[in-house]
Nucleic acid binder design. Structure first.
Lengths: 259, 259
DNA sequence: AAAAATATTGCAAAAAATTGCAAACCATGC
DNA sequence: GCATGGTTTGCAATTTTTTGCAATATTTTT
C-alpha cells in the first residue's frame, strides 16, 4: 500500500516577492538558488521576481542573486585604465602564496583591491585592512573574515590613517602583508608621497612576519618624497616581468625572493 | 442508499464580502478558489467582490487572490513608489538638526546612507561610523572628516561589530547619534534581529549625548527579536508623517520630540 | 582556456483575468 | 398581477499572466 502525502503550499506571487524582499532586507545579500528553495519555485521564477523588484527599485539585482539597496559595492571600473593583464599576472602570483587559515594584512591601492577581487572563493583567510575598497571586495568572499582597521579615513586614498589605526596595528601580528607602494628604487627603497600613509605602512610592516610587495614594473626605479622601508625589509617582490628580465637587473642581487 | 444533504446558505453580498475580508485579515492572504469554496459562489463573483474591496482600499487585490493591507507593509506598488520620497523627507528633517562643527555618529542602514548622501557639501562635521556604505558616502563630502570604527566586519550588514568596535566606541563621546533601527514599538522599544548589531548599537547609545531615530512609518509598531533600547532612551523620533498623523497616536505621549 | 554557474530568450501549458451576455433576482409603480 | 429598470450572478470565449523548460549566450571560477 502506498500512501502519498502531497503537501502543496500554494503561494501567491505577491506573497513570494514579499518573502524574497524580507530575506534581502534581512541578509542584505541573497543567492538565487537559496530563494528558489525557500519559496519553492524554479530559479527562473525567482529571477523574474527579482528582476521585477529591481524594476520597482526595491532591491538591487546582481549576478547570482540580489542585494539590498543599502549595500554598497565598489565597482572601480574606472580605475582599470591600467593594463589589466599586468595586474592580474601579479595578483595571480600573489594569490599563489596564500594558504588556508592564514592571517593576512592588505594595504590599499588598486593592486590590492584587484587581488582581493580575485581571491578564490574557497580560500579561508582572516584579512585585516585599513582600506574601504579592499574591505568591500573581501566582504563578498564567503570564507574570508574581514577585520577593518579603524581610524580617520583619508579622503584621497580611502584608507584609515592616524593614531587610532596605528594603535590597532600595534596589537596584531599577522602571517603576511601585501604592501602596496607607489615607488620602489634600488637605493631609496619603497617610497610614498603621503606622510600619514607612510606612518601607517611602517606600522603594518612591524605587525607582519613576512612582507610581500606587488609592484607593477612601471613603478620600478621611481622615487617619492617619504620612505616606507628599505628593500631589505621586504621578503618577496612580485612583478609581472619574467624574473630574468633585464629591468630587474640589480634587484636580483638582493636577498628577497623575486616572482 | 444515498442521502444527499444539500445545505445552501443564501448569503447577502455584503455578508459575503465581510467574510472574505475577515478571512484576509486572519490569514493575511487568501486564494481565490478557496474563497469561492468558502462562500459558495463562483470564482468570478469572488473576483468581483475582491475587486470591489480593493477599490474601497479594504485589501490588496493580487493575481490569484488577495493579501491584507497590513501584511505587505513595506512592499507593495503604491507604497514603494513613495519609498524614496519618504526617505528623503526623513533625511531632510534629520539634516536640519545638524550644525557646523558637530561630532556625529551614524549607524548603518539605508536611511543613514541616504542621509550621508544628502548632506550639504558645505556642512562641516566630524562623523564616526561603523558602516562601510555610510563611510563611503561621507567620504565624498569635502567638509566632513570621517572616522571609521574598526573591528570585524559583518558580511550581512557591512558593519563592524564585536569587541574591538565596542571598545573604540567606549572611548568616544559625540553630540548626536543617528540610530537606524529595524523595528520600533510602543511597548517593546527599538528592536533588531541581529544580536551583535544590538550590542554595537547599545554602545553607540552610551557614546552619544543625544539620540535621534529616523524611522520610516513602515517600521512603526513592528517588533524584532532583540532589544536595543526603550523609547525613553531616544531624544528625537523622525518619521515622514505629519506629527498629527493618527498612526503616531500614542507616540505623542512620550517625552521625546516628534518631527 | 576550459568548466561551471548564471542569464537570456523563446516557447508552450496552465492558471487567472477580462469581457460580453443572458438568466435570475429585486424593488418599484402601474 | 405584471411591466420596467437596475443589480447580481454564472457561463463561455478571449486575452493576459504566470511558470517551467530548453537552447543559447554570457559571466564567473578554476
Amino acid at each position: 500500500m502506498f500512501i502519498f502525502v502531497l503537501i502543496v503550499t500554494i503561494m501567491l506571487k505577491a506573497e513570494r516577492q514579499q518573502i524574497i524582499l524580507n530575506e534581502v532586507r534581512r541578509h542584505n545579500r541573497v543567492l538565487l538558488p537559496d530563494m528558489a528553495d525557500l519559496v519553492n519555485v524554479s530559479v527562473d521564477t525567482v529571477r523574474r521576481d527579482i528582476t521585477e523588484l529591481h524594476r520597482k527599485k526595491k532591491l538591487q539585482k546582481v549576478h547570482g542573486g540580489a542585494i539590498s539597496l543599502g549595500f554598497h559595492n565598489y565597482n572601480y571600473q574606472g580605475v582599470q585604465v591600467y593594463s589589466k593583464d599586468e595586474k592580474s599576472i601579479i595578483c595571480e602570483k600573489a594569490i599563489s602564496l596564500l594558504r588556508d587559515g592564514q592571517v593576512i594584512l592588505f594595504t590599499g591601492g588598486t593592486t590590492n583591491m584587484e587581488m582581493a577581487r580575485l581571491l578564490p572563493p574557497n580560500l579561508k583567510l582572516t584579512c585585516f585592512t585599513p582600506s574601504l575598497p579592499v574591505a568591500s571586495q573581501l566582504l563578498v568572499k564567503p570564507n574570508v573574515e574581514v577585520i577593518f582597521i579603524g581610524g580617520r579615513v583619508s579622503k584621497d586614498s580611502q584608507i584609515t590613517v592616524g593614531g587610532s589605526a596605528i594603535h590597532m596595528l600595534s596589537e596584531i601580528s599577522v602571517d603576511l602583508c601585501f604592501l602596496g607602494t607607489h615607488s620602489i628604487d634600488l637605493s631609496h627603497g619603497l617610497t610614498e608621497f603621503d606622510w600619514e600613509i607612510v606612518q601607517l605602512k611602517k606600522s603594518m610592516i612591524k605587525a607582519s612576519r613576512k612582507i610581500v610587495a606587488p609592484v607593477i614594473s612601471e613603478k620600478l626605479n621611481t622615487i617619492q618624497r617619504y620612505k616606507i622601508c628599505d628593500l631589505e625589509d621586504i621578503d618577496t617582490l612580485i612583478t609581472e616581468l619574467d624574473p630574468k628580465d633585464s629591468l630587474l637587473g640589480y634587484y636580483r642581487d638582493k636577498r628577497f625572493e623575486l616572482l
